[in-house]
Structures are given as C-alpha cells and as structure tokens.
Design a protein around this nucleic acid. Sequence first.
DNA 1: CAAGCTATCAATAGATCAATTGAATAACAA
DNA 2: TTGTTATTCAATTGATCTATTGATAGCTTG
Lengths: 221, 221
Amino acid sequence: MNSRHEKYALFEAIALMGKAFASPRRLELLDLLAQAPRTVHQLARASEQSRANTSQHLQALHAAGMVTRARERASVRYALAGDEALSLWLALRDASVAQLGEVERAARDYLGEDVEAVGRDELIARLGRGEVVLVDVRPSEEYAAGHIDGARSIPLDELEERLADLPTDREIVAYCRGPFCAYAHEAVRRLRSTGRSARRLEGGWPEWRLMDQPTRPHKAA
Amino acid sequence: MNSRHEKYALFEAIALMGKAFASPRRLELLDLLAQAPRTVHQLARASEQSRANTSQHLQALHAAGMVTRARERASVRYALAGDEALSLWLALRDASVAQLGEVERAARDYLGEDVEAVGRDELIARLGRGEVVLVDVRPSEEYAAGHIDGARSIPLDELEERLADLPTDREIVAYCRGPFCAYAHEAVRRLRSTGRSARRLEGGWPEWRLMDQPTRPHKAA
DNA sequence: CAAGCTATCAATAGATCAATTGAATAACAA
DNA sequence: TTGTTATTCAATTGATCTATTGATAGCTTG
C-alpha cells in the first residue's frame, strides 16, 4: 500500500536540509550569519575562501532553506532564515559538544587557556545594580546589527587604544559571538593583564537573543 | 595569532555530527531508533536494505555520536544516544517542514488524505474524563519499549481482527511514531469506515515523551 | 569443536561533492 | 557606452560517499 518509495522520498527531502550541515565551510558561514547578515564578498573575506566557492556554499544553504538572499544595490546579502534556522544551528553545535569529545578538544585548542565565565542571570542582576560594565568585543558591524541591551561596543582590535574608557574599579564582562568565539577570551586575558577585574559572558549574542524570545517548546505536527 | 587552521578544525569536528544527517538512509535509521533500540538485523529489515549497508550507516551515526551500540548475545543493539540526540533529530525534522516546501509535499504524498488531529492538551483533558480510548498502533515491540500512559496496544496489522475490543460509543484516538508515520492516519481511516468516531494524535510517542521531560531551554557554554 | 547466525570488514565501481579556474552576467558609476 | 565591482555559472579535477559483493570474525548452541 504505502510504497517504500514515497517514504524514502520524504527522508530524501529532509536530508536536503541535513546536507547543509555536512561541510565545515558551510558551518562557518552559518556561524558568521548568526551574527549579522552579510554579502558574499564579506563572507568570502571573513572565511578566507574564494568568492566562487563561497557563493556555491551559500547556494547550497539557500537550497536547504537555511538562509535567505536579497539583492542590495550591486551586492547580494545573505541572512539566516529566521529563528528556526538559528536555533537549529545552535542545537547542532551544542549537541556536538555534548556527544563528541573531538569538538571539545578542538575548542580548547582554538580558544586557548580558559577564562572565568559569568552566567546570564548573574549578569542581569549585577548589571541592574551597576556593578559591571558590559562590553561587546565583536567587530562594530556586528554590534550594529544587534547587541545586548546596555552593552558598549569595543572591538577587540581597538581594545588597547580605548583602555582609558574602561573603569578600573568595576568588573568588566566581555562577550562576543558565542562559546566558540575567541574574542571574549582574548579580551578578558588582555584586560586582566592590565590589572582589571574581568570575566567573559557564557555564550554570545545569538544565544542571548534567543533566550529573550518566548521559549518555544517542541512543536508537534 | 589564532590560526585559521584551529578554527577550521573546530568546524570540521562539528561537521562530523552534521554528516550524520546528510543521508536519507541514516535519517530513516534515526527515525526507527527514536521509537526503540534495535539490532542491525531488525533495522536492515525495517528499512529494506542490506545488512552490510545498514551496519555501515550505523557506524557513521555512531561516529557522529548520535547512537550508542551494545553487544547483546549474538547481536549488536543500537539506540539513540540520549534525549540530546533525539531532540536534535526532531528539531531538524520540524525545521525542514517549516523551511522546505518539498518536505511538506513529500509528506502529503506519503501520508495520503489528511485526517483530523487532536492536540496534546485536549487529549489529556478528555482522557481524564474517560471520553476517549487511546490506541497505540505501532508494532508491539515499540509499544513495549515505551508508550503513552493509558494507551492500549493494537498494531495496525491486527486492527481488523480486534475491532470488537474497541467501543463504538466513544471516540478513539490513534497515535504512532510521529507526524510522518502513516500508521495512525491509516488506522483512523479504517476506523471511520466502520462508523466509529476517530482522530489521530498530533505527533507521536517520541514527541510526547520529550514534552513530559522538564523543558530544557537553550544552554549556553 | 562444528554449525549457524550476526555483524563487520575489505575491495570495488558508480555517484556525488568540493574547490579551482576562467568566463558570463548584473548593477552601478563616470 | 565603457569600465568596474559583485556575483554566479560552467567545466574540470580530485576527493569523498554510497551501495554491493564476498570474505571474515564473534557469539551461541548442539
């Protein structure tokens, strides 16, 4: 009655989306797009690969329904296809940490010496009492595309020259793209070397933003 | 400073898990394992492919951290690697429905004419008042591995011969593996053709089970 | 131990994917 | 129009993935 062929076609269709996650290059693009929409040119530069290759991977992501594209003047701007896509990427990332020791090891190699982190609830409480200064150390375009309420933008590149703007008597909390982004780690290490008290925020901007949304439990269909 | 190579290695490690979702065959195996642990032999039969091929795909899933394996007498029993893995698979499946029209179309082709569904909250309420009979129409092994509290097991194969066990004066609600499982649809159609009042439950056993868990919001690391 | 079943391995061919190159197209500005 | 930049397309190569086949190894039972 129900042909195996039709059932298989269903899994084939789902695998169209699954294929999006099968290439490290595409995951890097997704990670960048989780911060802010970008053009092909920008993405190619940020991920250090040719524009043609970037374009092809973006088309694969588009076919998988993970990103949207829009012409903007002479360029084409790609963006994550909504919170559904964002939370799927974050879920894959977190699950891979939980299930594969390989990932945790690679993360340690990349991030360097671990620095102390502060959780969301504690940060909110201390921010409310004015005890901490929250600093967004991502590139300024990403800050412009969205940031945590009350955060100041100090891209990691400019940290040294703007040290004078930062207090020495209050704790500084730095955040960046997420748990696998090295900017906040590096910023905290540099701030501490100047004698300041500093920690990094657990997670980054996309995680924060999703938590602000109404929690969406599993949807049955 | 931070070598691109180490960053890329991190995405490569995550892609190890992503690759698990890139093949329809592996997705079918995941879908089966979401119901109950099984041996290679059982999985090969259920997915109608050779044992060698099934074994290879299962090893890929194992390398991706999505399944666990355990020897059991002469067989090897595979199982989903925890709720983390289950909810990731469900998230991918749901996201693919939301983002890819292709999936919805394939689902319609497979499931046939849509039948009316009842939601979780309504079912719980009506079950509490004794207004409905809840029927699990999956194969009995899957019922044995876990089922909704208060459900009776009537595998679809045996529906006709056990019609006498089912009341004609109360509504019957059938459920099976999930939104893409045809058993409940088919059961409802057959029950209606006998004049009974019947609907299917939205979603299936794995979704129900996850909803019973404490909701786990996004975890930052 | 020998027989029988289960699962995995090894080798292979065919298909698909990834990255490169160079050309083609689209939007814009002079 | 012409030149310039941004993106995509087309064709190619090498790599990886998939499924098949037949052989091998592990467990269990007689």
